[in-house]
């Protein structure tokens, strides 16, 4: 590979102090520049541990992690945290400021950004998540989805190379979830940034370029969403669901309908059916 990966995990093993089992066992993977990767797996599969290793909130017992060619260690940790922005699960417990603007300021202040530069970055990051006009709102007057969008804006203001969403939509209602996915999609269309979503929402997986499936602390499979959902049966065996469209097309296949590619959306499946229907 000519250019350095955004993220590389080499033979990472990790164990929690109180845990008696390894949370991660010899995990290796790469995430490329500008890639959107979804990491899925049932609870306890090690997917959230991966997120916390990426910016040094946890330190592995063995193996090396590089972010943009920079090794994650004691020495580089603050440099790494400038490159990796993270959005956590609970919208309330990551909102530090008393108002929206103060919350965005918090990260900028930590990184020593000058005030006039702050104002610029605040403006565009609020625009990016469509929260202009909410500058002086207090967190208890915002919905969960709005708080998470502020969290994304706070991350964007630091101008990171990588954004990690660690189950950031798990506590939101469907409207909130959609707004977050749309926001991330919109952000990606405007700037170069890699996105790692850690999730168990199948619809979020469809946004990703690539999926890493975790099972019992190991990388179980890597591939495009299409390739992964093709493994319908095997996914079921490790406790993961597949989307409705996948389930339906599998049933259709067993009825003898020939589908050329694994459909992911309603439209794709409908088109396949139509092709089959109009074939003579």
């Amino acid at each position: 590979m000519s250019q350095p990966n955004d993220i590389s995990f080499q033979n990472i093993s990790f164990q929690y102090p109180q845990g008696d089992e390894w949370a991660l066992k010899d995990v290796s993977f790469h995430i490329e520049e500008n890639e959107w990767v979804a990491i899925i797996g049932h609870n306890g599969s090690g997917k959230s541990t991966i997120a916390k290793l990426m910016n040094g909130l946890l330190t592995p017992q063995s193996g090396r992690i590089h972010i943009k060619g920079l090794e994650v260690n004691e020495e580089n940790i603050w440099e790494v945290r400038k490159k990796v922005g993270m959005v956590f699960q609970n919208p309330d417990n990551q909102f530090v400021g008393t108002t929206v603007i103060d919350d965005i300021a918090f990260g900028l202040e930590n990184h020593g950004v000058q005030r006039d530069e702050m104002l610029k970055r605040m403006k565009y990051s609020l625009e990016a998540v469509k929260m202009e006009g909410y500058e002086n709102h207090e967190p208890h007057n915002l919905s969960g989805g709005q708080k998470q969008r502020v969290a994304i804006a706070s991350v964007l203001a630091i101008e990171p190379d990588i954004i990690i969403l660690d189950e950031a939509t798990a506590m939101l209602d469907p409207i909130g979830r959609n707004s977050i996915m749309e926001t991330v999609d919109h952000v990606r269309s405007e700037r170069d940034v890699s996105v790692v979503t850690i999730t168990h929402d199948l619809n979020e997986v469809l946004f990703a370029d690539r999926v890493i499936v975790m099972n019992d602390g190991e990388v179980w499979k890597e591939g495009t969403p299409r390739e992964i959902f093709n493994l319908h049966k095997e996914l079921g065996e490790i406790g993961l669901d597949t989307p409705f469209v996948t389930q339906l097309s599998n049933s259709l296949k067993s009825e003898g309908i020939v589908l050329n590619q694994e459909p992911l959306t309603h439209k794709e499946l409908m088109d396949e059916l139509w092709t089959f229907y109009s074939r003579t």
Binding site: Q247, L252, S254, Y277, R279, T280
Partner: peptide, 20 residues
């Protein structure tokens, strides 16, 4: 169930193939 629906859809789709 999804299987039952797949069966019904298959019937319609196949009929289309025969009709033509």
């Amino acid at each position: 169930s999804i299987q039952e629906l797949a069966k019904e859809m298959t019937e319609i789709v196949r009929r289309g193939v025969k009709d033509e």
